[in-house]
Design a protein around this nucleic acid. Structure first.
Length: 467
RNA sequence: GGUCCCAUCGUCUAGCGGCCCAGGACACUGGCCUCUCACGCCAGAGACACGGGUUCGAUUCCCGUUGGGACUACCA
């Protein structure tokens, strides 16, 4: 069996977005599953809209998601000679011809046809004029005007197109740059692509491409058209649906494995399984399990997945990923080991690294800021006695760890003072964190350390006295 | 308008004629756990778009209707 070769051909006219990333992921998985190759190709023939910045953004996104390519990146603008060669072939064989209809004329005729209820397709008036090259001339493909073209789609099954519906598409613009539908075929042919997996917004382009393959006498690859990802309003995902760029998710504190897991489940399933490691994905992935209907992107589920991966991570692996978020907030730098301990206390409580950075503030700043409402409610004069008794015990504690802390706390509050644990826990929490919500009290005391804990407890005591 | 695609809980989906008065997950509601918040656990509510066929039997097959989407460029 021949080696599977897939490709991802983004056009660098914007950042790598969710839909493109999923297409890339599917192609990558398909190649990996079959032990084949994955090619990256930059489709930059739209010179006016292509930017280097977008190209870099695409690389960054692919790298972040871990979708390494085996070949490329190829740039179409560097392959112009190849296209010229094939174009000449088509011209020589009579499958293509020059046309000098201006865009304005075309536009007018299109409108006219629409108004009269006719198909707004090119009327083929330059087909047999035998025009040669010249300024302001494009090259068109001569489409057969009868017959049927069949697309045997791996995902959707056979789809039939009437050739009469297709028109003579432009292969080369008047500026000499070839167009997408032509170039994509030449690239896929010359790069020996065996499987073209792409969004189903390309379905209607496929018969034209198949016709070009046939005109060239080139073997057809297998096609698999994946249903689109839609926004909440069920329309094609676009900027107005909020964050669509992959890197925006990185900036929001998502882990790449969460995004990969979330993306792959949009359209693809393996029974009831929700969580997949990269290895499992490679092992299980197949086109047969891709659904036919479009899916709506759902942030809630992605948040849950992210929370899951944060929970499952080793705390120290999260530290370097978290740092940029900490720095952005201007927190004082602390040793990695300490940050790792703080991370551990927050893992089950956050959905993103952003939330984690926010929730970590009291571990890192020198003096906590009291939430006014919390201070008013819990740092009351009646709590003085408990704090007065807690401080010396903590102070004299030899081994300042979670277990001893909890024992001592329980002894004083419950046994000696006859109070419920919660009665004193909340005031202590406010003293240490400034607020009423935090990880377990003894966990944070253990991480914060004796010195800081005593300092904050004493400060809270002063605060109570001044009430 | 034309061509093409699609249709299971709010969302992602399982289902490939009887195992389904439809299963899982997120979100939601209630409870348990508990020093707060989470996590975790248990329970609950929630869908086969509609109408015809085919069949002993349709969520599953066929047709139509409706609804949604894509394409219809000298964009990709």
């Amino acid at each position: 069996m021949e080696t599977v070769i897939t490709r991802f051909p983004p056009s660098p006219t914007g950042s790598l977005h969710i839909g493109g990333a999923r297409t890339a992921l599917f192609n990558w998985l398909f190649a990996r599953h079959h032990g084949g190759k994955f090619v990256l190709r930059i489709e930059d023939t739209d010179v006016a809209r292509s930017t280097e910045e977008s190209t870099r953004g695409i690389f960054d996104g692919m790298e972040w998601l871990g979708l390494e390519w085996d070949e490329g990146p190829y740039y179409q603008t560097q392959r112009l000679d190849i296209y010229k060669e094939y174009l000449q072939k088509l011209l020589d064989m009579g499958h293509a011809y020059y046309c000098d209809c201006s865009p304005d004329e075309l536009d007018a005729r299109r409108k006219e046809a629409m108004a009269e209820g006719r198909k707004p397709k090119y009327d083929g008036r330059c087909r047999d004029r035998g025009l040669g090259p010249g300024p302001n001339r494009v090259i068109r493909f001569r489409c057969p005007d009868s017959g049927t073209t069949v697309l045997n789609d791996l995902i959707k099954g056979p789809i039939f197109f009437d050739n009469a519906e297709l028109d003579d598409l432009v292969l080369q613009r008047s500026d000499g740059i070839p167009t997408y539908n032509f170039v994509v075929v030449i690239d896929d042919v010359t790069m020996n692509i065996t499987h073209v997996i792409r969004g189903d917004d390309h379905v209607n382009n496929t018969p034209r491409q198949i016709l070009i393959y046939q005109a060239l006498g080139a073997p057809l690859p297998q096609f698999g058209h994946v249903p689109m990802i839609l926004g909440q309003d069920k329309a094609k995902l676009s900027k107005r649906h909020g964050a669509t760029s992959v890197m925006a998710y990185k900036a929001m504190g998502f882990l790449p494995e969460a995004l990969v897991n979330g993306l792959v489940r949009l359209g693809w399933a393996h029974g009831d399984q929700e969580i997949f490691s990269r290895e499992e994905l490679i092992q299980y992935f197949s086109l047969e399990n891709i659904g036919k209907s479009p899916s709506v992107f759902n942030l809630e589920k992605l948040l849950w997945l992210n929370a899951h991966y944060i929970k499952e991570s080793e705390p120290h692996t999260l530290v370097p990923l978290l740092k940029p978020f900490l720095e952005k907030r201007g927190y004082p730098a602390k040793p990695d080991g300490y940050v790792g301990e703080a991370v551990r206390t927050l893992q089950t409580r956050v959905h993103t690294l952003e939330e984690m950075a926010d929730g970590m503030k009291f571990f890192l700043v020198d003096d906590v800021e009291y939430d006014p409402a919390a201070a008013k409610k819990f740092l009351t004069p009646t709590m003085q006695e408990a704090f007065d008794r807690l401080i010396p015990v903590f102070e004299s504690m030899e081994v300042f760890n979670e277990e001893n802390l909890e024992k001592a706390f329980h002894q004083i509050v419950v046994t000696e003072m006859g109070l419920k644990l919660g009665k004193v826990a909340q005031p202590v929490r406010v003293a240490l964190t400034g607020g009423t919500v935090s990880p377990g009290l003894f966990e944070i005391i253990g991480v914060l350390g004796k010195e800081t804990v005593l300092k904050r407890l004493k400060r809270a005591l002063e605060h109570m006295k001044s009430q």
